[in-house]
C-alpha cells in the first residue's frame, strides 16, 4: 500500500510539472513569440514595416546612384476619406533628403480619428529607408470636410544594396481601433 501512495504522489507531481509546462507555453506566446515576431520583422523588414522617425543623420550623398521612389496610398474599405499621395514618384540620390506630401480629406459629416500605416517594398530596403519626419502610426483627428497635407521627410541610406534601384512606399489609412467614431469630440 505504501508504494501505491508513493506512486500516487509522484503522479500528482508529474501532473503539476506538465501543467506548469502548458501554462508557461501560454505565457511564452505572449512574452516570447509575439515580441520575437516583431523583432524579426524589424531586423529582416518582413512586411515592410518601418519604424518611427530616425535621429541618425547622414550627410554624405552618393550622387552616382539614382533611386526611384514611388508612393502609394490606400484607405481601408468603406472609409469616408480621400487619401492620396501628392508626389507619386521622386528620383533621389542615396543620402539626399526629400520631402513629399500626402493629402487626407474627411468626406463624412462627422469628426473622425484615423491613422496611417506604412509599408515598404522590397522588404530588404526597410532598414535603409530613414524617415526624419513622418505621420506614420500617428493619430490624426479630422473635422467634417477637413483636409490636411501631411509631409514626410526621408532619405535613403547609401548602404542600400547595390541591386536595388527602385523602392515603393505605401501608406494605408485605417480607422483608429478602439474609437467609437461617433464619440470623438473636436480636435484638441
Amino acid at each position: 500500500m505504501t508504494t501505491d501512495a508513493a506512486k500516487k504522489k509522484s503522479n500528482t507531481k508529474i501532473m503539476v510539472q506538465l501543467g506548469l509546462l502548458a501554462a508557461s507555453m501560454i505565457a511564452f506566446v505572449f512574452v516570447g513569440l509575439v515580441p520575437m515576431y516583431n523583432w524579426i520583422c524589424e531586423v529582416t523588414g518582413i512586411g515592410g514595416r518601418t519604424t518611427g522617425p530616425t535621429t541618425e543623420l547622414i550627410t554624405e550623398i552618393d550622387e552616382s546612384r539614382d533611386i526611384r521612389v514611388q508612393f502609394m496610398a490606400s484607405a481601408e474599405r468603406d472609409m469616408p476619406f480621400e487619401f492620396r499621395a501628392l508626389d507619386t514618384r521622386v528620383q533621389v540620390h542615396p543620402g539626399q533628403q526629400h520631402t513629399i506630401h500626402y493629402r487626407v480629406t474627411n468626406t463624412s459629416d462627422e469628426t473622425r480619428a484615423v491613422q496611417a500605416v506604412p509599408s515598404l517594398s522590397p522588404y530588404r530596403v526597410t532598414e535603409h529607408f530613414h524617415k526624419i519626419e513622418c505621420f506614420c502610426f500617428e493619430e490624426t483627428v479630422l473635422a467634417p470636410g477637413e483636409s490636411l497635407d501631411m509631409p514626410m521627410i526621408f532619405y535613403v541610406d547609401p548602404r542600400l544594396p547595390e541591386d536595388v534601384s527602385s523602392i515603393a512606399m505605401s501608406y494605408s489609412l485605417f480607422n483608429l481601433p478602439g474609437y467609437a467614431q461617433a464619440d470623438i469630440k473636436e480636435p484638441n
Binding site: L18, L21, A22, A23, M25, I26, F28, V29, F30, L33, V34, E76, Q115, V117, F137, S172, F174, N175, L176, P177, G178
Partner: peptide, 30 residues
C-alpha cells in the same frame, strides 16, 4: 502540451482584438 497552449494564446489574442480593441492582428493599430 507544447502547442495547444499556443492555440489558446492565439485565440485569446483574437478575443482581445475583437472585444477589447487590442491590435495584435489589426494592421490599423500597428
Amino acid at each position: 502540451i507544447m502547442v495547444m497552449p499556443v492555440l489558446a494564446g492565439l485565440i485569446t489574442m483574437m478575443l482581445l482584438d475583437i472585444t477589447a480593441q487590442t491590435s495584435f492582428f489589426n494592421a490599423a493599430g500597428g
